[in-house]
Design a binder for these strands. Structure first.
Lengths: 133, 133
DNA sequence: ATTTGACCTGGAGTGCGCTCCAGGTCGTAC
DNA sequence: GTACGACCTGGAGCGCACTCCAGGTCAAAT
Protein backbone atom coordinates (compact mmCIF):
# COMPACT_ATOMS: atom_id res chain seq x y z
CA UNK A 1 0.00 0.00 0.00
CA UNK A 2 0.98 3.58 -0.50
CA UNK A 3 -0.42 6.71 1.05
CA UNK A 4 -0.84 10.33 0.09
CA UNK A 5 0.81 12.87 2.33
CA UNK A 6 -2.58 13.66 3.86
CA UNK A 7 -3.14 9.98 4.69
CA UNK A 8 0.37 9.65 6.06
CA UNK A 9 -0.20 12.70 8.22
CA UNK A 10 -3.45 11.30 9.51
CA UNK A 11 -1.92 7.94 10.29
CA UNK A 12 1.26 9.25 11.88
CA UNK A 13 -0.36 12.05 13.80
CA UNK A 14 2.13 14.50 12.34
CA UNK A 15 1.14 17.48 10.24
CA UNK A 16 1.70 17.56 6.49
CA UNK A 17 4.18 20.35 7.01
CA UNK A 18 6.05 18.30 9.56
CA UNK A 19 6.29 15.35 7.19
CA UNK A 20 7.89 17.54 4.56
CA UNK A 21 10.07 19.13 7.20
CA UNK A 22 11.29 15.74 8.43
CA UNK A 23 12.16 14.84 4.88
CA UNK A 24 14.06 18.07 4.35
CA UNK A 25 16.15 17.55 7.45
CA UNK A 26 16.78 13.93 6.51
CA UNK A 27 14.91 12.18 9.26
CA UNK A 28 12.97 10.42 6.60
CA UNK A 29 14.25 9.09 3.28
CA UNK A 30 12.44 10.77 0.41
CA UNK A 31 9.35 8.67 -0.21
CA UNK A 32 8.37 7.40 -3.65
CA UNK A 33 6.44 9.74 -5.94
CA UNK A 34 3.38 8.98 -8.02
CA UNK A 35 3.11 9.82 -11.72
CA UNK A 36 2.15 13.40 -10.87
CA UNK A 37 5.15 13.90 -8.61
CA UNK A 38 3.20 13.61 -5.41
CA UNK A 39 4.68 11.80 -2.41
CA UNK A 40 3.55 8.19 -1.99
CA UNK A 41 4.44 6.89 1.46
CA UNK A 42 4.94 3.14 1.88
CA UNK A 43 3.99 1.04 4.88
CA UNK A 44 7.67 0.94 5.78
CA UNK A 45 7.77 4.72 5.69
CA UNK A 46 4.85 4.79 8.10
CA UNK A 47 6.48 2.25 10.41
CA UNK A 48 9.58 4.36 10.52
CA UNK A 49 7.53 7.49 11.12
CA UNK A 50 5.83 5.71 13.98
CA UNK A 51 9.14 4.92 15.56
CA UNK A 52 10.38 8.46 14.99
CA UNK A 53 7.38 9.87 16.80
CA UNK A 54 8.10 7.58 19.72
CA UNK A 55 11.64 8.83 19.85
CA UNK A 56 10.35 12.41 19.78
CA UNK A 57 7.98 11.62 22.61
CA UNK A 58 10.91 10.51 24.70
CA UNK A 59 12.30 14.00 24.23
CA UNK A 60 15.11 12.92 21.96
CA UNK A 61 16.43 15.98 20.13
CA UNK A 62 16.11 15.97 16.38
CA UNK A 63 19.85 16.07 16.07
CA UNK A 64 20.14 12.61 17.64
CA UNK A 65 17.24 11.29 15.65
CA UNK A 66 19.06 12.41 12.54
CA UNK A 67 22.13 10.49 13.57
CA UNK A 68 20.07 7.39 14.19
CA UNK A 69 18.25 7.84 10.89
CA UNK A 70 21.46 8.23 8.98
CA UNK A 71 22.96 5.11 10.58
CA UNK A 72 20.08 3.06 9.22
CA UNK A 73 21.51 3.66 5.77
CA UNK A 74 24.87 2.36 6.80
CA UNK A 75 23.89 -1.24 7.26
CA UNK A 76 24.61 -3.77 9.94
CA UNK A 77 28.00 -2.29 10.77
CA UNK A 78 26.22 0.62 12.42
CA UNK A 79 24.06 -1.56 14.66
CA UNK A 80 26.35 -1.11 17.63
CA UNK A 81 26.15 2.65 17.48
CA UNK A 82 22.42 2.56 16.94
CA UNK A 83 21.95 0.36 19.96
CA UNK A 84 24.14 2.67 22.01
CA UNK A 85 21.95 5.62 21.07
CA UNK A 86 18.84 3.79 22.20
CA UNK A 87 20.45 2.63 25.42
CA UNK A 88 21.53 6.16 26.18
CA UNK A 89 18.06 7.46 25.44
CA UNK A 90 16.55 4.79 27.65
CA UNK A 91 18.73 6.04 30.45
CA UNK A 92 17.63 9.60 29.96
CA UNK A 93 13.97 8.55 29.85
CA UNK A 94 14.35 6.65 33.12
CA UNK A 95 15.96 9.70 34.68
CA UNK A 96 13.20 11.94 33.41
CA UNK A 97 10.55 9.62 34.84
CA UNK A 98 12.27 9.71 38.22
CA UNK A 99 12.45 13.48 38.06
CA UNK A 100 8.77 13.74 37.25
CA UNK A 101 7.92 11.40 40.10
CA UNK A 102 9.81 13.67 42.43
CA UNK A 103 7.97 16.70 41.16
CA UNK A 104 4.68 14.90 41.51
CA UNK A 105 5.41 14.24 45.17
CA UNK A 106 5.84 17.94 45.68
CA UNK A 107 2.63 18.68 43.82
CA UNK A 108 0.83 16.16 46.00
CA UNK A 109 2.20 17.81 49.09
CA UNK A 110 1.10 21.25 47.96
CA UNK A 111 -2.29 19.98 46.90
CA UNK A 112 -2.83 18.37 50.26
CA UNK A 113 -1.96 21.69 51.84
CA UNK A 114 -4.69 23.36 49.85
CA UNK A 115 -7.02 20.55 50.87
CA UNK A 116 -6.37 21.38 54.49
CA UNK A 117 -7.01 25.03 53.89
CA UNK A 118 -10.34 24.14 52.37
CA UNK A 119 -11.24 21.97 55.29
CA UNK A 120 -10.41 24.82 57.62
CA UNK A 121 -12.34 27.30 55.53
CA UNK A 122 -15.10 27.63 58.10
CA UNK A 123 -12.65 28.41 60.88
CA UNK A 124 -10.80 31.72 60.84
CA UNK A 125 -7.18 30.58 60.93
CA UNK A 126 -5.13 33.19 59.05
CA UNK A 127 -4.05 31.89 55.66
CA UNK A 128 -1.32 29.63 56.91
CA UNK A 129 -0.31 28.54 53.46
CA UNK A 130 0.89 31.97 52.50
CA UNK A 131 4.09 31.29 54.36
CA UNK A 132 5.26 28.70 51.89
CA UNK A 133 2.93 29.07 48.96
CA UNK B 1 19.40 36.15 55.47
CA UNK B 2 19.69 37.79 52.10
CA UNK B 3 21.60 36.72 49.05
CA UNK B 4 23.29 38.37 46.11
CA UNK B 5 22.05 37.43 42.69
CA UNK B 6 25.10 35.21 42.24
CA UNK B 7 24.31 33.37 45.47
CA UNK B 8 20.65 33.06 44.54
CA UNK B 9 21.65 31.65 41.17
CA UNK B 10 23.97 29.15 42.78
CA UNK B 11 21.36 28.05 45.28
CA UNK B 12 18.46 27.85 42.84
CA UNK B 13 20.40 26.31 40.02
CA UNK B 14 19.15 29.00 37.67
CA UNK B 15 21.43 31.40 35.84
CA UNK B 16 21.74 35.03 36.84
CA UNK B 17 20.16 35.97 33.54
CA UNK B 18 17.27 33.67 34.19
CA UNK B 19 16.67 35.19 37.61
CA UNK B 20 16.42 38.64 36.08
CA UNK B 21 14.30 37.25 33.28
CA UNK B 22 11.87 35.63 35.74
CA UNK B 23 11.56 38.93 37.51
CA UNK B 24 10.89 40.79 34.26
CA UNK B 25 8.12 38.42 33.29
CA UNK B 26 6.65 38.59 36.78
CA UNK B 27 7.26 35.05 37.93
CA UNK B 28 9.10 36.52 40.83
CA UNK B 29 8.23 39.61 42.80
CA UNK B 30 11.02 42.15 42.59
CA UNK B 31 13.39 41.28 45.43
CA UNK B 32 14.66 43.84 47.92
CA UNK B 33 17.67 45.95 46.96
CA UNK B 34 20.72 46.76 49.01
CA UNK B 35 22.03 50.29 49.50
CA UNK B 36 23.82 50.12 46.17
CA UNK B 37 20.71 49.08 44.28
CA UNK B 38 21.73 45.44 43.96
CA UNK B 39 19.14 42.69 44.32
CA UNK B 40 19.02 41.06 47.75
CA UNK B 41 17.05 37.83 47.66
CA UNK B 42 15.37 36.67 50.85
CA UNK B 43 14.96 33.10 52.04
CA UNK B 44 11.32 33.32 51.01
CA UNK B 45 12.41 34.37 47.54
CA UNK B 46 14.61 31.29 47.36
CA UNK B 47 11.83 29.03 48.58
CA UNK B 48 9.57 30.37 45.90
CA UNK B 49 12.30 29.98 43.28
CA UNK B 50 12.73 26.41 44.39
CA UNK B 51 9.07 25.73 43.87
CA UNK B 52 9.12 27.50 40.52
CA UNK B 53 11.94 25.31 39.30
CA UNK B 54 9.95 22.24 40.31
CA UNK B 55 7.01 23.49 38.31
CA UNK B 56 9.29 24.09 35.34
CA UNK B 57 10.65 20.57 35.69
CA UNK B 58 7.13 19.23 35.39
CA UNK B 59 6.99 20.95 32.01
CA UNK B 60 4.55 23.60 33.10
CA UNK B 61 4.63 26.44 30.58
CA UNK B 62 5.75 29.79 31.87
CA UNK B 63 2.37 31.22 31.04
CA UNK B 64 0.72 29.00 33.66
CA UNK B 65 3.46 29.64 36.15
CA UNK B 66 2.77 33.34 35.72
CA UNK B 67 -0.88 32.80 36.47
CA UNK B 68 -0.03 30.86 39.59
CA UNK B 69 2.51 33.47 40.63
CA UNK B 70 0.06 36.28 40.17
CA UNK B 71 -2.60 34.49 42.20
CA UNK B 72 -0.25 34.38 45.15
CA UNK B 73 -0.63 38.13 45.40
CA UNK B 74 -4.39 37.86 45.53
CA UNK B 75 -4.63 36.25 48.92
CA UNK B 76 -6.63 33.36 50.24
CA UNK B 77 -9.51 33.96 47.85
CA UNK B 78 -7.36 32.64 45.03
CA UNK B 79 -6.49 29.39 46.80
CA UNK B 80 -9.13 27.43 44.92
CA UNK B 81 -7.80 28.45 41.56
CA UNK B 82 -4.23 27.83 42.65
CA UNK B 83 -5.11 24.36 43.79
CA UNK B 84 -6.90 23.70 40.51
CA UNK B 85 -3.78 24.64 38.60
CA UNK B 86 -1.68 22.23 40.62
CA UNK B 87 -4.23 19.45 40.29
CA UNK B 88 -4.34 19.95 36.54
CA UNK B 89 -0.57 19.93 36.38
CA UNK B 90 -0.45 16.77 38.44
CA UNK B 91 -2.71 15.16 35.91
CA UNK B 92 -0.51 16.18 33.04
CA UNK B 93 2.59 14.92 34.84
CA UNK B 94 0.95 11.56 35.44
CA UNK B 95 0.03 11.38 31.78
CA UNK B 96 3.54 12.28 30.74
CA UNK B 97 5.00 9.59 32.99
CA UNK B 98 2.68 7.03 31.42
CA UNK B 99 3.69 8.18 27.96
CA UNK B 100 7.35 7.90 28.82
CA UNK B 101 6.80 4.41 30.24
CA UNK B 102 5.22 3.40 26.96
CA UNK B 103 8.13 4.81 24.99
CA UNK B 104 10.55 3.04 27.26
CA UNK B 105 8.86 -0.26 26.54
CA UNK B 106 9.46 0.33 22.86
CA UNK B 107 13.06 1.27 23.49
CA UNK B 108 13.51 -1.92 25.51
CA UNK B 109 12.05 -3.95 22.70
CA UNK B 110 14.35 -2.37 20.12
CA UNK B 111 17.35 -2.73 22.37
CA UNK B 112 16.62 -6.40 22.92
CA UNK B 113 16.46 -6.76 19.14
CA UNK B 114 19.92 -5.30 18.86
CA UNK B 115 21.03 -7.66 21.62
CA UNK B 116 19.88 -10.58 19.56
CA UNK B 117 21.71 -9.31 16.52
CA UNK B 118 24.86 -9.13 18.56
CA UNK B 119 24.41 -12.66 19.82
CA UNK B 120 23.99 -13.88 16.27
CA UNK B 121 26.94 -11.90 15.06
CA UNK B 122 29.06 -15.03 14.61
CA UNK B 123 26.42 -16.68 12.47
CA UNK B 124 25.60 -15.20 9.09
CA UNK B 125 21.90 -14.50 9.39
CA UNK B 126 21.18 -11.46 7.19
CA UNK B 127 20.53 -8.38 9.23
CA UNK B 128 17.03 -9.25 10.31
CA UNK B 129 16.53 -5.99 12.11
CA UNK B 130 16.66 -3.98 8.92
CA UNK B 131 13.05 -4.91 8.31
CA UNK B 132 11.78 -2.81 11.17
CA UNK B 133 14.74 -0.72 12.24
C1' DA C 1 -12.74 24.64 -21.03
C1' DT C 2 -12.58 25.80 -16.53
C1' DT C 3 -12.91 25.13 -11.85
C1' DT C 4 -11.66 22.75 -7.83
C1' DG C 5 -8.76 20.82 -4.52
C1' DA C 6 -4.83 18.28 -3.22
C1' DC C 7 -0.34 18.61 -3.80
C1' DC C 8 4.33 20.85 -4.98
C1' DT C 9 8.66 24.18 -3.85
C1' DG C 10 11.74 27.47 -1.48
C1' DG C 11 11.86 30.38 1.91
C1' DA C 12 10.14 33.29 5.65
C1' DG C 13 7.92 33.53 10.17
C1' DT C 14 6.59 31.91 14.94
C1' DG C 15 6.61 30.90 19.98
C1' DC C 16 9.16 29.43 23.66
C1' DG C 17 12.58 29.96 27.09
C1' DC C 18 16.19 31.61 27.76
C1' DT C 19 21.09 33.92 26.82
C1' DC C 20 24.07 37.47 25.50
C1' DC C 21 25.63 42.15 24.87
C1' DA C 22 26.95 47.15 25.34
C1' DG C 23 27.44 50.61 28.15
C1' DG C 24 27.14 52.17 32.79
C1' DT C 25 27.34 52.37 38.25
C1' DC C 26 29.14 50.84 42.76
C1' DG C 27 32.10 49.50 46.66
C1' DT C 28 36.35 47.30 48.04
C1' DA C 29 41.45 46.42 47.51
C1' DC C 30 45.79 48.15 46.31
C1' DG D 1 43.00 57.58 42.71
C1' DT D 2 42.52 53.87 39.95
C1' DA D 3 41.77 49.24 38.91
C1' DC D 4 38.79 45.48 39.60
C1' DG D 5 34.84 42.69 39.86
C1' DA D 6 30.10 42.22 40.72
C1' DC D 7 26.19 44.17 39.63
C1' DC D 8 22.78 47.19 36.88
C1' DT D 9 19.54 48.25 32.48
C1' DG D 10 17.21 47.79 27.98
C1' DG D 11 17.23 45.40 24.19
C1' DA D 12 18.93 42.20 20.71
C1' DG D 13 19.93 37.42 19.50
C1' DC D 14 19.62 32.39 19.65
C1' DG D 15 18.34 27.31 19.09
C1' DC D 16 14.69 24.43 18.62
C1' DA D 17 10.92 22.38 16.27
C1' DC D 18 7.95 23.40 13.73
C1' DT D 19 4.31 26.29 10.84
C1' DC D 20 2.88 29.23 7.35
C1' DC D 21 2.94 31.47 2.90
C1' DA D 22 3.09 32.73 -2.14
C1' DG D 23 3.00 31.16 -6.30
C1' DG D 24 2.75 27.20 -9.14
C1' DT D 25 1.38 22.22 -11.20
C1' DC D 26 -1.70 18.57 -12.09
C1' DA D 27 -5.81 15.38 -12.56
C1' DA D 28 -10.55 14.58 -11.96
C1' DA D 29 -15.30 16.66 -11.97
C1' DT D 30 -18.69 19.79 -14.20
Amino acid sequence: MSYSIAEAARRSGLSIDTLRYYERIKLLDPPARDSAGRRAYSDDDLTWLGFLTKLRLTGMPIKSMREYASLRNHGAASAGRRKAILVEQRKSVAARIAELQGCMDILDYKISNYDQIERKAFGQAPALEEISA
